[in-house]
Amino acid sequence: MTSFALRRGLMALPVLIGVSLLVFVMARVIPGDPVLIATGLERAHPEELARAAQRLGLDRPLPVQYADYLGRLVRGDLGVSLRHQRPVVDLILDRLPATLELAGVAFVLSLGLGVPLGVISAVRRGGPYDYLAVLVSVGGMSVPAFWLGLLLILIFSLNLGWFPASARGGPLAEAAWAIFSGGGIRPLLRSLSHLVLPSIALAAPAVGLIARMTRSGMLDVLGEDYILGARSRGLPERSVIYRHALKNALIPVVTVSGLFLGRLFGGAVILETVFAWPGIGRLAVLAVGRRDYAVIGGAALMVAFGFVLVNAAVDLMYAALDPRIRYG
């Protein structure tokens, strides 16, 4: 098992190097001068621009820049943001918790809705409940994210006044801790109330994907011999479905958690803007607009690293769960 984990870890290395190369090339080929964008047209001055560019090392040959970049990456140095005049690591660490929190809640939400919907539609295959479950779940993944976000704000913030329209209501973990440390339940309620709308909007497409995976997983498993066996032994249908079938049907759902993470990030980029959520997705897209190379690289690497990490964890978990996977 340990050697499998090691090998799995080693596999991630070339991927991360590849990502660093891709992000480096990508950032450099986009036209647009970061210094000019930062200075603004009204204050631009050609001499200053050339001088600043030289200082930033932007006029050196690309391979030299990349080698330099990689060298600093290995030492854990992601560089300094041109726009914010701060180390990229700090910028990311400031914003990462907000994105993780939003994505985490959305993930839980999409599992909580997607799995039951998938089960219903598998167990009642072809029946009206199947159709309804499919329409709900597929409907959720068919609405453009930013429109859904704005509609939620109009309905639930403006008209009903149930939830705040934007911003983060304080870190969720801290708010939860407050209950135990005597801060009462209000911080938690506040934090959650701010999370409701963005996490629903973010979860909407994932619900459909999870429901779809669960449904086909269930259909797959329900046809297996051991389920037929359990049924023939007269076990109650409820127990067959939930104790035997669902457990196995969920394995494939787990294996795509990494993919979900990627998709959630894509949604976060849009929804963090709509909901003024102080996360890393917005940071990354703004950085592309401003040609803030260090930030683009840092954010992309961070997301890729998260993706690789989750995938590796899933593989290990899968190997642990499923005896058919060989460790060799």
Binding site: I30, P31, G32, D33, P34, L36, I37, L41, G289, R290
Partner: peptide, 8 residues
């Protein structure tokens, strides 16, 4: 054009 490209 996206703003940075436009400036260029």
């Amino acid at each position: 054009q996206e703003w940075g490209t436009f400036l260029q």
